[in-house]
Design a protein around this nucleic acid. Structure first.
Lengths: 261, 261
DNA sequence: CGGGACATTGATTAAGATCAATTTAAGTGG
DNA sequence: CCACTTAAATTGATCTTAATCAATGTCCCG
């Protein structure tokens, strides 16, 4: 019962090949991990080690912007001009439909490319709201395209990025269409866990940056239901939940639940 | 009560600027309407009037393929090599998840570009199943990319096509997350109606090419529920339903329901 | 040390799933 | 062309899940 906060204290350093980073910092001080993944669209020269986190540094030659918790990076209706690479922090992408109901379409984390929703017809359709103080690299779209200079590979890279977004929507679609609330929450947690793990954080212990209401609006359910499911998973000794602090006790059980028993 | 089948007999020829085509033929004999819309990716030369429908003609210089009802154009797991432009007919895009539950992610109609789900990681993730005898233009992806020859405009056109697919998934997502079954069915019918209207068919009277089960699997509900909703809409004099034959009596009422009253 | 946002928990209700039985239409082959 | 076969659709009865309404608890921030 005597939890050692802050959560993220890794008892799973053997988790995967990632560096043992046991705390989840508010600000990441990594070099652009997109460059490492070959996924950085900004420029080929984005390869510097740059381990420091200077307030206004521009390792890509691209401007950065700091966004405080709750602030928008862009809003639905804004003219599409830039893509944004989320350098540090986390974000919710929200669509508000005419009747005022809101849906969270995704929770991008550090490394994600934001703003693709503006490509369809020149205006953004989502609000991108920071869930914590965050930093984005601003990538002017016109410059990006110009920088390709007829290099088809670069164009295909963007294609793939958009297609990946499509794919993630398709997966969420499946969840909403065919899963019950337990399954939805389980697969949501596994998604978060997996992405944190892939970024080198603990995939077993972490802090949710979003409210229960955000999760509910993401999974197409009510916040009370989210709370109840978490409670149930805790009773079943699959999770340990303390507010936003989450500890996955039994990943296998969670996976089983997430894929429909 | 004495319906004049086949449905599609337009009592709404004034519907929009489209040519008065009152029956829905199994085979369309239109020229590539994608060329007209500037959306044909296959080639710039795809502009011929070509009103005839020769079995193996290749107006794009691209091969065509005929698919019979129930056949797959491609299947999940197939290596991604081609895009397909649906020249005539209609299709369901189906994802089957590990637990065997299936979800219909979309119902592409004539003009649609198929196969984009393969771009993400080189293999298709959906089955594309013909709902009726259909014809597709096969567009080898490598050739398509090669044909751009450094022309960024063409790359951007494909970007936009993928982004549109993303957008349509986002809209379906909203429907599944925030709408009740009446609203879902109404907005589904409006979508079909709108797309038929945009293609020059009657947007008021048409034949659904898919089963109730397909619709249910698209909207995340049970086929019985689809049937009941249609029954209710019929009682409310919003629709006239006869099996697959559908007549929208009160489009305004349907729109109201579709957007949450 | 409050004050307010966020979260949990309980009781009740309603929407849709599920189970089950017909009904209807569309092919199919004699 | 008609009887037969089968897939699809409708309809009814019941049950389950999650929504809704409401109260209370807890933590974080100033």
């Amino acid at each position: 019962m005597n939890h050692s906060y802050p959560a993220g204290r890794g008892d799973d350093a053997q988790d995967d090949g990632a560096p043992g980073r046991h705390f989840i910092p508010v600000f990441s001080s990594d070099p652009c991990r997109l460059a490492a993944a070959g996924a950085c669209l900004a420029s080929e020269s984005c390869q510097g080690p740059g381990g420091e986190m200077p307030g206004q540094a521009q390792p890509h030659g691209m401007p950065r912007r700091m966004v405080r918790r709750g602030e928008a990076i862009y809003r639905a209706g804004d003219a599409f001009g830039n893509l944004y690479q989320l350098y540090a922090g986390s974000v919710k992408l929200r669509v508000t439909c005419s009747s005022g109901v809101e849906q969270i379409v995704s929770f991008p984390m550090a490394g994600a490319l934001l703003g693709l929703d503006g490509i369809e017809d020149g205006a953004h359709t989502c609000d991108a709201i920071a869930l914590e103080d965050s930093v984005v690299c601003i990538i002017p779209f016109a410059e990006l395209v110009a920088s390709w200079g007829g290099n088809t590979m670069m164009a295909l890279r963007l294609n793939k990025a958009i297609a990946q977004e499509t794919g993630s929507y398709r997966r969420l679609l499946m969840a909403l269409a065919c899963m019950n609330s337990d399954e939805r929450v389980a697969s949501f947690l596994l998604d978060i866990s997996g992405r944190l793990g892939a970024s080198g954080y603990s995939s077993r212990q972490f802090v949710l940056k979003m409210t229960r209401e955000d999760i509910a609006h993401h999974l197409g359910m009510q916040l009370e239901t989210v709370s109840r499911v978490l409670g149930r998973l805790q009773s079943a000794r699959v999770l340990e939940v303390r507010r936003r602090h989450l500890h996955i006790l039994d990943p296998d059980a969670l996976r089983k639940i997430g894929s429909g028993y």
